[in-house]
């Protein structure tokens, strides 16, 4: 008896204190997507291909000039991935100042959470071909009071590289995150999170943005699955089963006697 009680006590205390250290250590760096310039963690995320609102080449052709945009989230962050490529023959002076593949990645986007707009400002900086660069991410409330909500100094990463098989083009890939806690917004069930690059202050969504046309969006769904009910029903069934067993045992003993 004492041995059993002692075992329970040891087990419970071990569970509480050992797991504290183990699980905290494992889950500390458990974001679904790491902002580190390694884009492999986006491989499994479905994306949206949108046409760019800027010409792909000097003639204004937009053939095959697309941006692959991916959105995701977890309990801590909303994540954005933008993959696009440019033709070096194009007049892209606002992005690439010289032909030695030198890119300025200072850009602005808008994110809508259940229809509410937020402006995203990517930090200043330049990056050369084959190199990566971390940048800061700032987010402000885009309507009403212009309230600055998020400043994440290591919130984004950009990488620039030549497109394989076509040295006249090169692509740059962004990934950045927005802290849900700093944003202080509850994402309602069955709501939409979308990204645009529209600079218009009225009717943000649906307009051709500065960098791409339209919007990339995800729909968040969620609801309680009611686990407490099944836990309670389990207790009832177990108790009912135990009562049934006692009755049956008594009955069979009486019959036997």
């Amino acid at each position: 008896m004492k041995k059993t009680m002692f075992t329970i006590l040891v087990l419970v205390i071990s569970l509480l204190f050992v797991s504290t250290h183990l699980v905290e250590r494992v889950s500390a760096d458990s974001s679904s997507i790491q902002i580190d310039g390694n884009f492999n963690d986006w491989d499994n995320v479905p994306g949206t291909q949108l046409n760019s609102s800027q010409p792909a080449d000097i003639n204004g052709t937009q053939t095959d000039f697309q941006r692959d945009i991916k959105l995701s989230y977890d309990e801590d962050y909303i994540y954005v991935y933008i993959d696009s490529w440019y033709d070096l023959n194009a007049d892209m002076s606002n992005h690439f100042s010289t032909l030695d593949k030198y890119a300025n990645f200072h850009q602005q986007y808008y994110i809508f959470i259940d229809g509410k707009p937020y402006q995203i400002q990517l930090g200043n900086g330049t990056v050369t071909n084959g190199e990566g660069h971390a940048f800061s991410v700032d987010v402000s409330q885009a309507f009403g009071d212009w309230q600055h909500l998020v400043h994440d100094t290591q919130g984004g990463y950009v990488d620039v590289e030549t497109v394989k098989g076509d040295e006249s083009k090169f692509k740059y890939v962004y990934e950045f995150r927005i802290s849900r806690k700093d944003l202080a917004v509850t994402i309602p069930e069955n709501s939409e999170i979308s990204l645009t690059s529209s600079g218009e202050y009225d009717d943000f969504e649906g307009k051709d943005g500065q960098y791409f046309k339209g919007k990339a969006s995800i729909t968040y769904v969620g609801a309680s699955s009611g686990p407490w009910i099944i836990a309670f029903l389990g207790l009832l069934i177990a108790f009912f089963g135990y009562r049934l067993r006692l009755k049956r045992q008594t009955k069979e003993k009486n019959t036997g006697a």
Binding site: S30, S32, V45, S72, D74, E75, S217, I218, T219, V221
Partner: peptide, 22 residues
């Protein structure tokens, strides 16, 4: 559908729309 285990996210594609379930 696909998942992001570390993010606890199930990603479902419905026509062109991406639906995420946590």
């Amino acid at each position: 559908f696909s998942t992001l285990p570390l993010g606890h996210v199930i990603q479902v594609l419905y026509h062109e729309r991406i639906i995420l379930m946590n």
